[in-house]
């Protein structure tokens, strides 16, 4: 991608991080594919996460602790850290870039209005959850999420996703990924509380924050600090290793793509 377009994209990314903070005031039930009213959760709060990429070392402790806490099936992840190796084409210098991914708990979540049975919904505190006793497993929400944050859990045969560990937040605990983060890169908190760490950091770094795929108009509520705009949307990258599993989900080795 050329320089000008990249710069433009960066600007859009930054601007939209700002726009994400403006609540969609008119999110009442209306036309087809509009956001339905929110339910459950604390209406006084708006949970969000700030990820300080400068402090992320890509250790995947969050990936592992989330997996243990939420018992996702092998090969499915509610959160994962994408790891990139970036090589300067002229000098040959290389660097790594770490990008933790999880559900963005968008202000305008595209997964919610598509659900045909209202199993997936947004709580009043902004957390997007799935009631897996209602979910029919149609996987429409999996298609609608631009972040690949959802999957069909093969054990429950219903949609599964990051909940910001709502079950832990509700009893005053931190999400598993936040608690296990070695560098303290993940900060979760209430945006409605001006004294919360996340509110203070958002204020301090407001102009530097970016969100993923702002062009999707989802207004994500996972904000990245120290982000490189080339990684905001699907990065122009080559895959290095695909993990190879057999039908039972057992790892049977690695397959290296040609490079």
């Amino acid at each position: 991608m050329d320089k000008i377009r990249r710069a433009l994209l960066g600007q859009i990314a930054k601007l939209t991080a700002g726009a994400a903070l403006v609540p969609l005031s008119s999110v009442a039930s209306a036309a087809i594919n509009d956001q339905p009213p929110r339910r459950e959760g604390d209406p006084e709060k708006r949970y969000a996460m700030l990820i300080d990429l400068r402090a992320c070392i890509g250790c995947q402790a969050c990936t592992v602790s989330c997996h243990i806490e939420n018992e996702a099936p092998l090969g499915n992840f509610r959160t994962i850290v994408s790891q990139y190796e970036v090589e300067h084409e002229e000098t040959g210098d290389s660097a790594t870039f770490m990008l933790p991914r999880l559900c963005n708990h968008c202000e305008n979540p595209p997964c919610v209005p598509v659900c045909p049975v209202q199993a997936t919904f947004q709580r009043q505190d902004g957390i997007v959850v799935v009631d897996n006793e209602v979910c029919v497993g149609c996987a429409y929400c999996v298609q609608a999420c631009p972040y690949d944050a959802r999957f069909i859990n093969e054990h429950t045969q219903t949609a599964d996703k990051c909940t910001f560990c709502a079950h832990r937040l509700d009893v005053g605990l931190l999400p598993a990924c936040v608690e296990s983060c070695v560098g303290g890169a993940r900060i979760i908190g209430d945006l409605h509380d001006p004294d919360s760490q996340i509110s203070r950091m958002m204020k301090e770094h407001y102009s530097e924050l970016m969100v993923l795929k702002p062009e999707m108009g989802t207004a994500p509520h996972v904000f990245y600090l120290g982000m490189d705009e080339r990684f905001v949307s699907r990065p122009d990258a080559k895959p290095a290793i695909w993990d190879v599993r057999d039908q039972q989900g057992e790892e049977i080795g690695y397959e290296f793509s040609g490079h």
């Binding site: 209306a30 036309a31 209005p113 598509v114 659900c115 045909p116 049975v117 209602v134 429409y140 045969q157």
Partner: peptide
């Protein structure tokens, strides 16, 4: 058959969701 929980098809009719195209289809 494309539903991962086909026996829950009745949820479509127990939870009418006029803002979802799939629900309208059902």
């Amino acid at each position: 058959a494309d539903l991962h929980q086909p026996l829950r098809f009745w949820h479509f009719y127990a939870n009418l969701t006029p803002w979802s195209w799939m629900s309208i289809g059902s």
